[in-house]
Design a protein around this nucleic acid. Structure first.
Lengths: 201, 201
DNA sequence: GAATTGTTTAACCATTTGGTTGACAAAAGT
DNA sequence: ACTTTTGTCAACCAAATGGTTAAACAATTC
C-alpha cells in the first residue's frame, strides 16, 4: 500500500465524517476506522485535527466555487447564464449534497476561515455580472432589479432546497424519491421562474 | 434569587451557546459561566446536556414555526399572503438571526428530532395553500406553477440570505451595514419578485 | 547486505467533558 | 420549633478525546 494511497484514504474518510458531523462532531477515531488505518496515521500525514479539517474544507470550497465564478464570468447573454447556472449548479450539488450545509455551518462557526481560502476571485467575477445586469436594465431589456438581489435570488433558490431538505420534506410531505424529483425539476424551474420575473413581455 | 430566575438564566445562556456553536460545539461549563451559576445547576434543572439542548431546540422551532403556518393558513388573497410572509418572516429572522442556521445544522445532523417536535401542523397548512394556488392557476389568474416550487422559492429567498451571510457578504463585497440594508430591502423585494414572476400581465 | 529512511502499529498520556456526590443553606410545611 | 423540601456549590469521577512515543516493519539507498 503506497503512501499516496493511505493519504487518499484518510482524506476520503475525513471528508465523509467532517461533512456529515462538522468539525466539532467529528472524531479522529471514527475517521481512522472509516479509513481502516491506525489513528496515528492521521497525525503522521496531517499534523492535527485542525489541519485535516482545513484540507477537507478547502476541497469542499474548490468543488463549489469554480463553477460559480466560471458561469458568472462567462461571456454569454444573461438569460443563458441563469439557465446555465441553475442547471449545472443544482446538478453539481446533487452529487455533493453534504457540502453546502457543511460550508454554511463551519463558516457561521468561524467566518475567518474564508479569508485564508479564496475571497478575491468572487468579488471580481461578481463585478462583471453587475455591469451586465445594469446595462440590460438601462436598455429596457429587463425590469429594474439590483444585481445583488438577482444573484441572491438565483443562488438561494438553487441551494436552499438542499440545506433545508429535512424541514422542506416534512412541510411538503414528500418522501425521498419525490423530493429528489422536485430537486431535478428545479434545474429548469428556477431559471424559468427568475427569467419570467425580470423579462419585459 | 428565585428558582424561575435561575431556570431562565440557564435557558437563555444555553440558547446563546447552543445556537452559535451547535450541540457538539457547546460546552456545559460555558453555559454555566454565561449564566453565572454552578455547572451542577444545569443538571439540577435539566437532567442532561441532551435534555437542555432539546429545550433550546424546541424553543427555536416554536419561534419560527407558528408565523409560517399562521400566514400560510390565513384566509387571504395569495399575493397578500406572499407580501405578508416575506415582510414579517424576514423581520422575525432578523431578530433571531442564529436560529435558521442552528435548526438547519441540527436537523441535518439528526433528522429524527423533527418527528418529536411538530410535523403534523405543517403538512395541513400546506394543503390549504396548495388548493389556493391550483385554483388560481385553473382560473388563469397566475401562470402555471407547482405549489411546491412556489413555497420553496419564497422560503428560500427569505431565509437563505441569513444562513449564507458570510459567503454572500464576501461575494457581494458588502460590509455589515450594507448587508443589513440588503436584508431589509428583501422584505418587499422578494414578494415583488415572486409576484412579478407568476402574475398574468 | 548493512545502513538509512519512510511507514505503521500498540500502548500510553494529559486534558477536557458531561455528569455525580455530599455538604450546606434557605424556604416551606407542620 | 423542628422537619422536610428545594436550591446552590465545591470537589470529585469516569469516560472520551486529541495527541505522543517508541518500537516493529518495510522499502530504498549505499
Amino acid at each position: 500500500m503506497s503512501n499516496k494511497d493511505t493519504e487518499h484514504k484518510i482524506l476520503n474518510a475525513a471528508t465523509e465524517v467532517f461533512q456529515s458531523k462538522g468539525m466539532d462532531g467529528a472524531r479522529m477515531q471514527e475517521i481512522a476506522d472509516k479509513a481502516n488505518i491506525n489513528k496515528s496515521m492521521l497525525h503522521y500525514y496531517y499534523r492535527s485535527k485542525q489541519k485535516l479539517f482545513e484540507a477537507v474544507f478547502k476541497t469542499a470550497i474548490s468543488i463549489m466555487a469554480p463553477k460559480l465564478t466560471e458561469i458568472i464570468e462567462k461571456e454569454e447573454p444573461l438569460f443563458d447564464k441563469i439557465r446555465d447556472f441553475t442547471n449545472s449548479y443544482i446538478g453539481l450539488i446533487s452529487k455533493h449534497s453534504y457540502i453546502p450545509t457543511f460550508i454554511i455551518h463551519e463558516l457561521n462557526r468561524n467566518p475567518k476561515i474564508l479569508e485564508d481560502t479564496f475571497v478575491k476571485k468572487f468579488g471580481d467575477s461578481f463585478n462583471k455580472m453587475k455591469i451586465q445586469v445594469k446595462e440590460m436594465v438601462d436598455n429596457g431589456e429587463i425590469h429594474p432589479i439590483e444585481p445583488e438581489h438577482l444573484i441572491m435570488n438565483v443562488v438561494a433558490m438553487s441551494i436552499f432546497p438542499f440545506v433545508a431538505k429535512p424541514i422542506l420534506k416534512s412541510v411538503l410531505q414528500k418522501d425521498e424519491k419525490e423530493y429528489q424529483l422536485l430537486l431535478e425539476e428545479r434545474k429548469t424551474h428556477v431559471a424559468d421562474f427568475v427569467i419570467n420575473s425580470i423579462k419585459i413581455k
